[in-house]
Each structure stands twice: as structure tokens, then as C-alpha cells.
């Protein structure tokens, strides 16, 4: 699913965000990427989504080399990914339901199926009462759940969730992690970044990468 060999990422201002990243993530795996703020977790997800490109080394996502300039191929790849952004990237002025629908409109799904998937995803994240609410009128936690619903409704092969529990209380955070774990049933690979390691106590069916200062320091199963 994901294969990285000696990946480095340096931003134009000279900041070295990632150093010598080596990864091999198989389909259906759940991987938590932990580490303090600024350690390189988000940069790694940006590479996987084609928002940034490795300055050195090679990276493949679903068999596609992530290199600059392949706009059409990267767009196609992104359609198989369910991203959950740290800053949500929801579309203001639309309802929660419309936001979830927006993520599926160009996937070739018939309208009836899109509507059913959107409703089911919003029910899964506990927002059935807020489907018709404009997203800007929702709390941060609710907006985060809309973003997650948008990602899972697409039935992606890969979910890239950047701090998906960042704005949630303990109970809601655990619920979200449970939802993200459940997508494993449809063989979806899930990468979740978080700095809230206390939420991960007791999680056993996942792998863990600890990133610090741009490098993977600890790798393992269980915590």
C-alpha cells in the first residue's frame, strides 16, 4: 500500500521536515503516527497525499510513484484516499450533508447511493441530528466529525487522518478512533497522526510509528 525508501523532505525555506523515512505499510493495516507538534507527522501525510514531494528518496502509494508533475495520476490516486485534515477543510455555507456529498460527487456514484453513503457516514459519527446544519454553525468537534464522515463515506482504500481527535473530548475521541478502526473491516488502510498518546492505551490491533525531529524513532506493534 505504502512504500518509502530513504525519503527526505526539505521545504524551500531550508527546513528539513523529514529525514531518511523508510516505511512499508500493507493493505488493511492501521498505523498510528505519534510525535510532538512539529515532529513531521503532517509533512509525512502531505507526502502521501501528493501535497508535497520528496526531495530525496522514493515513495509509492498504491503502486504509484509520488513524483511532481503527474497531476492527473495524483488526482486519480486522491480519489482512492479519504483525507481528514487537521484544519478540516470543510466548505462553508453548506450543510454537513452537502459537505459529505461533496467528497463523493466525482467518484461516479449514482445520486441515490451517494445520499445513502452520506447519511450512513454521518450517522456513524453521531451527527444524524446535524445533517442539515451549516458547517460553520457546528462546534469544532462536530466539524471534525463531518470531516471524518466525508472521508469514510468515500469508501477509500486509504484513510489519512491528521489529528482526527484533536478537538474532541475523551469520549468522542475514543468513538472516532473506534469508527476509524472499524473501516478496517472493508480492508481500508488507516494512518492516524496524533500527539495524544494517552488515547492509545490498550489499542492492540494497530502498528505505531513515533516520529521525532523528522525521523522515525520507534516502530512497533502495540504500545
Amino acid at each position: 500500500m505504502i512504500r518509502a525508501n530513504g525519503v527526505y523532505l526539505r521545504y524551500p525555506d531550508g527546513t528539513e521536515a523529514l529525514k531518511d523515512i523508510n516505511l512499508h505499510i500493507k493493505p488493511g493495516e492501521i498505523v498510528y503516527i505519534t510525535g510532538p507538534s512539529g515532529s513531521g507527522k503532517t509533512s509525512l501525510l502531505k507526502l502521501l497525499l501528493g501535497m508535497e514531494f520528496a526531495t530525496l528518496g522514493s515513495l509509492e502509494v498504491m503502486g504509484m510513484p509520488m513524483v511532481k508533475g503527474k497531476t492527473a495520476s495524483i488526482n486519480k490516486l486522491r480519489r482512492k484516499i479519504g483525507p481528514v485534515f487537521q484544519e478540516f477543510k470543510l466548505i462553508d455555507g453548506r450543510t454537513a450533508f452537502e459537505n459529505v456529498m461533496m467528497g463523493m460527487r466525482f467518484l461516479g456514484m449514482p445520486p441515490r447511493k451517494m445520499k445513502d453513503e452520506a447519511k450512513n457516514a454521518l450517522i456513524k459519527v453521531g451527527l444524524e441530528e446535524k445533517m442539515a446544519s451549516k458547517v460553520e454553525n457546528l462546534s469544532w468537534g462536530q466539524q471534525q466529525r463531518v470531516a471524518i464522515a466525508r472521508a469514510i463515506a468515500r469508501k477509500p482504500a486509504l484513510i489519512l487522518a491528521d489529528e482526527p481527535t484533536g478537538n474532541l473530548d475523551q469520549e468522542n475521541a475514543m468513538n472516532i478512533l473506534k469508527i476509524l478502526h472499524n473501516v478496517k473491516d472493508i480492508n481500508t488502510t488507516v494512518l492516524i497522526t496524533t500527539h495524544a498518546t494517552h488515547l492509545l492505551d490498550g489499542i492492540e490491533d494497530a502498528n505505531f510509528l513515533h516520529v521525532d525531529n523528522g525521523s522515525i524513532r520507534v516502530e512497533g506493534k502495540g504500545w
Binding site: L49, M51, A72, N75, K76, L77, R78, R79, K80, I81, P83, F85, K89, L90, I91, D92, M102, G103, R105, F106, R150, R154
Partner: peptide
């Protein structure tokens, strides 16, 4: 621009 950027990140084709 924000909506367009989001759609691009979700993989929407330019024509859409």
C-alpha cells in the same frame, strides 16, 4: 479558492 483547493485535495478533476 478554499473550496477549489479542498476539491483538488479530494481528487476532483479540473473539469468537475
Amino acid at each position: 479558492r478554499e473550496q477549489i483547493n479542498t476539491l483538488r485535495l479530494l481528487g476532483a478533476p479540473g473539469s468537475f
